[in-house]
């Protein structure tokens, strides 16, 4: 059995390392190398995965593999962590991620009807992405703006006091942005 220390002495380590480094952007590779200098490098696993997701939008098998190799933790642990936390996504998502708050305050203020309206407008269910790859729909826990319930977050932008009839306009805001980008 190889322990964490001698894996780098195996015959094909250089090759494995090369592959892994190619799978990840430079700044993440650099961050992992920095972590390896710490006393408890494996404790940075979640942070590394967060960076990967920030860069790719999701955690792909190749990237998780690369993280496992470079951080030198078992792949089982990487996928164990990736599947445990709600934050991590294992499939790609649309350009705009719509997250409807399903926290208590939003729930009692009618978040369910907001969800229904999004589903109706986009023709997708939770966890799905529209065919044009533009929108994905998800539920989320309290976003910390309960006073403005119901709340919807689209990428980093937060919309408060969202009622079903405001939804078409919100979506339009993004589709317009898209067509502007296209015409440019």
């Amino acid at each position: 059995m190889c322990t964490h220390n001698n894996i780098q002495n195996t015959d094909n380590w250089k090759e494995v390392e090369g592959f892994a480094k190619k799978a990840l952007p430079e700044h993440i590779v650099a961050f992992i190398e920095e972590c390896r200098q710490d006393a408890n490098p494996e404790s940075k696993l979640i942070k590394v995965l967060q960076l990967v997701q920030e860069h790719f939008g999701y955690l792909g098998r190749t990237q998780m593999d690369a993280v496992a190799q470079l951080l030198q933790v078992p792949m089982a642990k990487v996928s164990g962590v990736a599947t445990f936390y709600h934050f991590f996504r294992l499939v790609p998502r649309g350009k705009y991620l719509i997250r409807v708050c399903l926290g208590t305050a939003c729930y009692v203020k009618g978040a369910e009807r907001v969800v229904d309206k999004f589903k109706e407008e986009l023709g997708i269910r939770f966890g799905e992405t529209t065919k044009d790859g533009l929108f994905s729909l998800e539920g989320t826990r309290c976003l910390g703006c309960c006073g403005l319930a119901p709340v919807v977050e689209i990428n980093e932008e937060i919309f408060g006091q969202v009622t079903p009839d405001k939804i078409p306009a919100i979506l339009e805001h993004f589709t317009e942005k898209e067509s502007e980008i296209k015409t440019q």
Binding site: S43, I46, V73, Y85, R141
Partner: peptide, 25 residues
């Protein structure tokens, strides 16, 4: 600073410690 990754149970102190250690919370 360490970031949570969206698991309510990580607010429980022993789970939180596991999470900081990089484990499943």
């Amino acid at each position: 600073i360490r970031l949570g990754a969206g698991a309510f149970v990580c607010g429980e102190e022993t789970a939180l410690i596991h999470s900081i250690e990089g484990e499943r919370g």
